[in-house]
Amino acid sequence: MKKLTAGWRSFWRNDQGLGTLEIILIIAVVIIIALLFKDWIIELIENLMGKADDEANRIFEN
């Protein structure tokens, strides 16, 4: 049991390469969220672009 505990302690103290792993996990989570909400994100962007286009047309027509 002491060897196991010592192994875990050395594992958590050794942070070499931990930054890379964190970056990969963050990217994976962002990709998963983007895939889950893909349709909603596309609809939101199209809606915003449509409103911006309508507003630009209204401004430049006057």
Rank of each mutant, 00 (worst) to 15 (best):
Q16H: 06
I31Q: 05
T5I: 15
W12C: 11
F37C: 02
L48D: 05
D15L: 09
D54E: 12
I26C: 02
L36W: 10
R58L: 08
L4R: 04
I45T: 07
K38Q: 11
L25W: 15
G7L: 10
I32D: 08
K2L: 05
D53Q: 09
K3P: 02
L35G: 14
E55N: 03
W12P: 00
S10K: 12
R58D: 11
L4P: 00
T5M: 08
T5G: 01
D39S: 11
L18F: 15
L44C: 05
I45Y: 02
A34L: 07
F11I: 11
M49C: 01
A56V: 12
A6T: 11
M49F: 13
E46R: 06
G50C: 01
N14Q: 09
V30M: 04
N47Q: 06
V29Q: 01
S10G: 09
W40N: 06
I45G: 00
K2G: 02
I41N: 06
F11C: 07
I41L: 14
D15V: 14
R13H: 06
I42C: 00
L35S: 10
A56P: 02
M1W: 07
L18R: 12
A6W: 03
L48R: 10
L25C: 14
D15E: 05
I31S: 05
R58S: 11
I42G: 04
D53P: 00
